[in-house]
Design a protein around this nucleic acid. Sequence first.
DNA 1: TCATTGACTAAATGCCGTTCAGTTCTTGTA
DNA 2: TACAAGAACTGAACGGCATTTAGTCAATGA
Lengths: 238, 238
Amino acid sequence: MGRTTPRRRDRIRAETSSEIKTIALKHLTAGGAEAVSLRAIAREMGMTASAIYSYFDTRDDLITALIADSYASLAGVMEAAGAGGSDTGAADRILAVATAYRQWAISHPEEFRLIYGDPVAGYQAPEDDAVREAEDRACAVLLRLVETGWPVPEHPAAEPYEWADFGDGYTRRVRELFPDLPPAAVALALRTWGRMHGQVALEIYGHLRAQLVDPAKLFRAEMLDLTRMLGADPTTSR
Amino acid sequence: MGRTTPRRRDRIRAETSSEIKTIALKHLTAGGAEAVSLRAIAREMGMTASAIYSYFDTRDDLITALIADSYASLAGVMEAAGAGGSDTGAADRILAVATAYRQWAISHPEEFRLIYGDPVAGYQAPEDDAVREAEDRACAVLLRLVETGWPVPEHPAAEPYEWADFGDGYTRRVRELFPDLPPAAVALALRTWGRMHGQVALEIYGHLRAQLVDPAKLFRAEMLDLTRMLGADPTTSR
DNA sequence: TCATTGACTAAATGCCGTTCAGTTCTTGTA
DNA sequence: TACAAGAACTGAACGGCATTTAGTCAATGA
């Protein structure tokens, strides 16, 4: 009964929907989020702006779709960088993922801003399943990095972590994927995220422009220290 | 010849200008950057939107003024936190500044987004003197933190830093304020910034909401490790 | 074959930033 | 004190925007 081949109408609909997204993405990368206007997209498609409402309930929904697609692209890049053959050292994998994160941000600045910034006014982080899934994928890459060096000696003064410290849904998904990792390891993965993110965010938003000639150099130094935090110091692991 | 008391007209002008900013800020905190509309501000002031153009050449200029004011407020909070009596340990001062940074962000989320995000479409980080000055003040607070624990043993694999690695103007201002600090210390201060910023940015933009029950706890752990990076481990300095 | 449904248009609503011509009133000076 | 200059402001307009609504038309599935 289940129909394998999509019906003609559904196919056309999917094509139009993806054409809208493609043009929207083009405008985004060309002129930032403000340039994503339903009228401009429709104009380019030879349609009326209101026609787009058959495909996206509102402009924000279209933006959310762009976020989901962009985040999936970032997650893919991170996964590829984190996969590295089994001959790759732990520190190298960490540096590879971090570099991939930064490089993706640099080559897709507007998409990065879309995901991690707030380019759409009054726009609250959407409760979108596709977005959450991409975020989980990115998170999983970091968890895999932590897993390699685990257990890492805790900072003496740090408070212990428990599962109750994390969101319910998140806890469930993490424990399913990484049954052997304790809560403290998850906390470490989130700290890793923050550490990678900090410098990249500052750089993308232009806050290191006047200070640094080569932001990559500072990022390398920071990520090198990160390997230590994850118990994968390159001086000992290679 | 120099007139000390401002003329009546100048005074009124300054008052109107600051009233515009006050209302703009009110709308910002209430509804995000999108809510800062010249028409809405003028409406509230009993004026026409075009009247505002006597005070700010464009909406973006008004936004830039808001950024400068907000950044100055953040810098002030950081300075206060970093001042701590001479009896305060180095680690405590670091934690105080970091906590101040995060707390300010949490209590002024829209201003934080204004400074470090990209709420205004197609808006490039302005080359505004007042903004740069506030950024320098915040930077100076971090440099003072680094200064306390300096010298910190470098990570073995890290590349050495030279003054040529930094922007010209920035280098000049830093060396004037901190004649004794070497380039590597400046690099460490910028890394400190990135590390503080990373988690706070993720939190403010809602990216830790689904994951963490208490983001402050993770931030504490990260900042505790930061004290180590700055050579001010609380276990040894207290 | 035919009623239904989805894609689409056209027009309108009410926002917005910005421009411009014209008005009013304050100001410093002749 | 009279007056020219200029600042502050109004009102109308332009072109842009998201969104809503009523209506058209053709593909669809029973």
